[in-house]
Write a protein that binds this DNA or RNA. Structure first.
Lengths: 363, 363
DNA sequence: CCACATCGGGAAAGCGCTTTCCCAAAACGT
DNA sequence: ACGTTTTGGGAAAGCGCTTTCCCGATGTGG
């Protein structure tokens, strides 16, 4: 019987794993293999450049580790190496398919490179975002991706900048997705251009009376989209009265209510641009079930993001596609290549996907 | 000017934060406050039971920490305390709304209790799940939630059991969602009963010729749902020929293709039960756009899960609702209460939500 | 007025790793 | 043949915290 006897909570001769209580330490592995902890460490994580452990001992160590089901203590390792393989991803809301897609992209890349991701959801609270950033910094996360757009608030922005600065001084790397008003690597979806695309599409179909279902204006991403739509409208000489802009709160049901409000104020609207797809679902529901307006015959609707369910809405949603998974992946890739001297900014284009929710104006 | 001069990369007299390079250590905070590290530690994380730090010093320490923007080194803390505030959540796929909802529930509870969650996506690979579990164990995560259902594979199950056992020996706690074939705390959605519910609903509407769009049978959750449907059908004396069961691969588009296959093999089917909502979206698309069959006039469809978009499908999907967010929250709560002597199992009921995709049989 | 708790602070010993040194043995050169 | 490099292993010094212990300075009761 080649396995050593070691201790025994299970004294029987058969048990292949005479595992001691509590976490197994490197020392125990070393003892079992009859080597020093130094050698055990090198055999298990031969990271020490040129230092090579002899084939013999190496095998013994690995066998010992396997037998004890050893996994190294990551915090201890982090302390000794002063580096971790953790990255943080902060989102507004995991259940929102927008963030789910971004996260999926980021996590895919993380996996390929052996990084563990800590996901934090802020539920759109700036306070919580700051708090999480500090905690991620405390964890010595290598990098963090701020994937929810920023908040349009001076105090917040400066606090964020300070926190990011501290983190960077600690050797951390932050990548933002969308506008955050701070000087970091970033990947920027074409919020303005995308919204303009939507407007031009509708204008091209003959629409002249527009409504917008917006999100909370405190979010810079929302502002940009709204701004993009507005500018494009202005340059086409179309009026967009403030009353025609309603806040759908980024939620389906809230958008549904907002849509009713919009049409009670401006019943002649024939084209509505919705600042994201989940709200668009609510808009479609309101039009169909609450207002009895037919899409696209009476009203055309275009969304934003092209979330997976967009094609399954009724009618299928015309929308501005953003390659969300790629965006997440790109952000993670920027992390892998490490920070550069000057912040990089990669721009990501949106693309109009025409489906069934838009048509020539008929009213 | 009350702030100390300390070092200075910015020698100007005004800079409020003369922060040294690299991460700030507790020692530096202690120095600045003129106390020992012991006191600084106690002042910042007064966890040491009765030990109280004098108001005076306490304030000084806090001020120093604030000034240096100190955050404690979590790995070092973890090492010293030999405990962390990390919990792992492993899912099959973050982008899948099913897991997104569960994660959201879990993360909400985690946040309330100051836990950081590490989210790992296995993309349905047993290998990866095992690997992540080991890594989470290495991180000394307090607990992990295995939220994807298990794999029906003996070798996998025994390896999982071993890994879980090791983890538990290290003081870890694991909670599973759905059947995993191992002896842990678990929250179990009513997969069998839910599927039976769907079948009874359709049967009650007069349907007698059933088809099932399943997922990969290697997943125990899928098996249970399928089994629930089968049993119910049998007890109603309805045949379900193997040819009427197709594998939709848990993906919308794959399910769409599978549906075409189903109807080419069994064109007389009037009721199809789909083992989850994302596949149901594909089924509806196939029926409507590929096969030209009208739902619910010619074919009735019921899904499973009641994901957020279910009500927005066309027609709105009749489905078996599972309170996913709650399920995630409950799992996290089991973690908070810590492991008990005997594993707990909480059962979660499904509930039929009748919408527009089912109707009396007419063919 | 002194023995004796009590309180609040610091010195120092870890926590489990990694990594620099240091050293013996083996390989090489001339 | 001997010096000189490699090679591969171990001893030990941290990494940045927490926490036990110890100790002087206050407060108590007899």
């Amino acid at each position: 019987m080649p396995t050593t006897a070691a201790d025994g909570s299970a004294p029987g001769p058969g048990g292949p794993t005479p595992r001691p209580a509590g976490p197994v330490t490197l020392q125990q592995v070393a003892d079992l293999a009859g080597v020093s902890p130094a050698t055990a460490s090198r055999a298990l994580h031969g990271s020490t450049g040129s230092r090579v452990v002899g084939e013999q001992l190496r095998e013994k160590v690995l066998a010992a580790a396997r037998e004890l089901r050893y996994v190294s203590n990551a915090p201890a390792q982090a302390l000794a190496r002063s580096t971790t393989s953790l990255v943080g991803v902060v989102v507004h809301d995991v259940a929102d398919p927008y963030f789910a897609a971004i996260s999926a992209g980021a996590m895919g890349v993380a996996r390929e490179h052996g990084l563990l991701v800590m996901l934090a959801a802020t539920f759109r609270s700036p306070e919580l975002e700051l708090d999480y950033l500090a905690r991620l910094r405390a964890q010595r996360a290598r990098a963090v991706i701020l994937s929810g757009s920023g908040f349009a608030d001076r105090s917040y922005t400066s606090r964020l900048a300070a926190e990011v600065e501290s983190y960077r001084a600690d050797g951390g790397h932050v990548v933002t997705i969308g506008p955050h008003g701070i000087d970091t690597d970033s990947v920027n979806p074409a919020n303005r251009a995308g919204a303009a695309l939507a407007v031009r599409h509708l204008h091209g179909l003959g629409h002249r009376r527009f409504g917008v279902v917006s999100g909370p204006r405190s979010l810079t991403g929302v502002r940009d989209r709204l701004d993009g739509a507005r500018r494009q409208l202005r340059s086409l000489d179309i009026a967009l009265p403030p009353a025609n802009i309603v806040d759908g709160g980024f939620a389906r049901d809230e958008a549904r209510g907002a849509t009713r409000a919009l049409f009670s104020r401006a019943p002649d609207v024939t084209a509505v641009v919705v600042l994201n797809d989940v709200m668009a679902a609510g808009v479609l529901a309101a039009l169909r079930d609450d207002l009895g307006l037919r899409v696209p015959e009476q009203v055309s609707v275009v969304g934003f993001d092209d979330l997976p369910f967009a094609a399954d809405l009724h009618p299928a949603l015309t929308t501005v596609r953003l390659p969300l998974t790629e965006i997440g992946a790109q952000a993670m890739e920027m992390i892998l290549t490490g920070p550069t001297i000057a912040p990089r900014a990669v721009a990501v284009d949106g693309e109009l996907v025409v489906r069934g929710s838009t048509a020539h104006v008929r009213r």
